[in-house]
């Protein structure tokens, strides 16, 4: 009998101690904000284009983390981003509806620009420079190709160009052998249905 009491008492004491440690740990290692939102945000292409129906990548990440949005709405991210988010959230992948366009780049036809600054205000990543009444120009290395500057321009002087392919950015394709093709097809099927 006393043996049983001892066992109960010591187990109880241990449980209390463990609870205390957990409580302290929760206070000490408390994280501000929702870590899931940041994790999803880190997977998004940060184009801030709004094609997902949200005003930017962070809002979309918040919606996905909160279970309000599906994982397949980011257009520029394409299938890879969708798979990564689904993997992170532990949910079923969903087919991406819209094909992403080839990477593009805004270009201001400078002699037509009237310097109204409207495109500057529209660009979510500050990729356009220029002062009022001076012609504006796009910093090619900063432009994400989101097209948000095209609409506001009152004189329609912004073109979207295809990004030039660079020799330095060329990369090797998969070897052209039967086995590599089979492996690749299998992988794509997997991504498609799962």
């Amino acid at each position: 009998m006393t043996g049983l009491l001892y066992a109960l008492a010591s187990l109880g004491a241990f449980a209390l101690l463990a609870g205390l440690i957990l409580a302290i740990a929760q206070k000490a290692f408390h994280v501000e904000g929702d870590p899931m939102v940041d994790k999803i945000d880190a997977l998004l292409p940060q184009t801030q284009c709004g094609q997902c129906g949200y005003p930017g990548c962070k809002p979309y990440a918040t919606a996905v983390a909160g279970g309000e949005a599906e994982v397949n709405h980011c257009v520029p991210g394409g299938e890879r981003t969708m798979l990564q988010i689904a993997d992170l959230m532990g949910v079923e992948p969903k087919a991406v509806e819209e094909e992403a366009a080839a990477p593009r780049l805004a270009f201001v036809r400078e002699d037509e620009c009237i310097g109204c600054t409207l495109c500057i205000k529209a660009c979510p990543v500050d990729a356009i420079i220029g002062a009022p009444k001076q012609y504006h120009t796009v910093i090619a290395d900063h432009c994400t190709g989101c097209e948000l500057c095209v609409e506001p321009c009152p004189v329609d002087c912004i073109d979207m160009l295809t990004k030039p392919e660079l020799l330095e950015h060329w990369s090797w394709p998969l070897p052209d052998t039967k086995r590599s093709q089979i492996a690749h097809e299998r992988r794509e099927q997997h991504a498609g249905h799962a």
Binding site: Q46, Q48, V125, D126, A127, T144, S171, W172, P173, P175
Partner: peptide, 25 residues
């Protein structure tokens, strides 16, 4: 291996660009 290295380099480049865009935004 060349294929793998190229794909990894591409992903790293995209990630770095996304990170920079996020900072700018």
């Amino acid at each position: 291996f060349r294929y793998g290295k190229g794909q990894i380099a591409l992903m790293r480049r995209e990630q770095a660009f996304a990170e920079a865009s996020r900072r700018r935004s």
